[in-house]
């Protein structure tokens, strides 16, 4: 196993629903999906975001798209028009999740 930044295995898009940010993490190749699914647990994602996410993290699997959808609750400083954050609508949470370091089997890590 080798530590690899998620950016090498996935792309992402994020948005908001009130004070909840959603972030979709999409495998760049179909064979990466299982690795991402195993590594990106709700606990690990919650811990990666630290104080950015005050509520719970929920994960939904979408094997049909090779994707995971995460809901990060209480993550936008009140959300909508209430928030004082520069990223009021969670637009760049996509980049933030791709900074995660995950364990990747050596034979796949070699190809990245």
């Amino acid at each position: 196993m080798k530590k690899v930044q998620l950016l090498k295995l996935a792309h992402a898009r994020s948005g908001d629903k009130g004070d909840t940010a959603n972030v979709g993490v999409i495998a760049l190749k179909p064979e990466f999906y299982e690795i991402i699914k195993e590594q990106l647990t709700e606990e690990k994602v919650k811990s990666h975001f630290g104080k950015n996410v005050k509520g719970k993290v929920e994960r939904f699997e979408m094997p049909n798209l090779g994707a995971l959808n995460f809901l990060l609750h209480n993550a936008l400083g009140g959300g909508g028009t209430l928030t004082l954050k520069h990223d009021a609508q969670g637009k760049v949470v996509s980049a933030n999740i791709l900074r995660m370091e995950i364990d990747v089997p050596d034979e796949i890590a070699k190809t990245l």
Binding site: H11, R13, N22, G24, G66, L71
Partner: peptide, 16 residues
């Protein structure tokens, strides 16, 4: 497929 996947995941809650 990639541009469509990104848009499908935009502002998505429980996908089912």
């Amino acid at each position: 497929e990639q541009t469509i996947k990104e848009q499908l995941l935009y502002e998505l809650g429980n996908p089912a």
